[in-house]
Design a protein around this nucleic acid. Sequence first.
DNA 1: CCGCTTCTCCTACAACTGTCGGAGGTATCC
DNA 2: GGATACCTCCGACAGTTGTAGGAGAAGCGG
Lengths: 133, 133
Amino acid sequence: MAKRQYELGTAELQILRVLWSAGPCTVRDVLERLHEQGRKLAYTTVQTFLTRLEQKGFVQSDKTGLAYVFEATLSRTRLRKSRVKSLVSQLYDGAAAPLVLQLIRSEQFTKDEIQKLHALIDELDQTETDSDS
Amino acid sequence: MAKRQYELGTAELQILRVLWSAGPCTVRDVLERLHEQGRKLAYTTVQTFLTRLEQKGFVQSDKTGLAYVFEATLSRTRLRKSRVKSLVSQLYDGAAAPLVLQLIRSEQFTKDEIQKLHALIDELDQTETDSDS
DNA sequence: CCGCTTCTCCTACAACTGTCGGAGGTATCC
DNA sequence: GGATACCTCCGACAGTTGTAGGAGAAGCGG
């Protein structure tokens, strides 16, 4: 009885990312994308990852033509949420605000992004004030 | 030639977190903290983690009294930065703004936090406008 | 001094992850 | 129809992580 909870390794995540950006892929498609990115892996390595991802329930496959076509079932949005949640709980004591502050302080944003942020914050401010009175 | 880059497992991170919150600790200190948190581990398990963390360079130990005292050398701030960086690069294509937006949209903040955010954004807005003109 | 508690050191082991090779099927191209 | 090119399936292996037990040193209460 050691580990039981399936996680995503970084290499597996890289495969998933290909599926997100390229849509349904065969093993070879994924392999080629990875090669384009400078990531050299053997064909069977990619195949292993895809199989394991399927076992973990993060992708699904269909054999319509000659080869299996794999597609992500775990969406990037879902993974984002889950990763952010565990980041916040593990390193920020569950409080998201310090993370937001850190991000804003340390990252460069474009004017557009700042605009959006501004709008959002104003909105927050508004609702908060409302609900408070 | 498989993996080479040392990472922090979640269990190891939990140990580190104890060190951050409690300061320098012996194996037993850590064990007790974990027990208080409802985390049941054997004494030697904790010891193994501490040893491994030391090998990875994330903690250091001194034997001043009877037992070794372990102290984190990796700060929470540093780890936060590194984790956030890899989160952003792996799941947000390197752009922090969408993460900020996501956080703001999905999290509840206190008035104080909103205040701070507001101030910060205003500041950003300012500098951005300045440097732009 | 003797046993009990506590520490350290070493070893172990199962599950998970990264990485691949070989065996064997099928389609394809002269 | 045999060589060529792919594809799938299965097994393998080393390194990492989670978890712990046993052997042996060292201090403490009686």
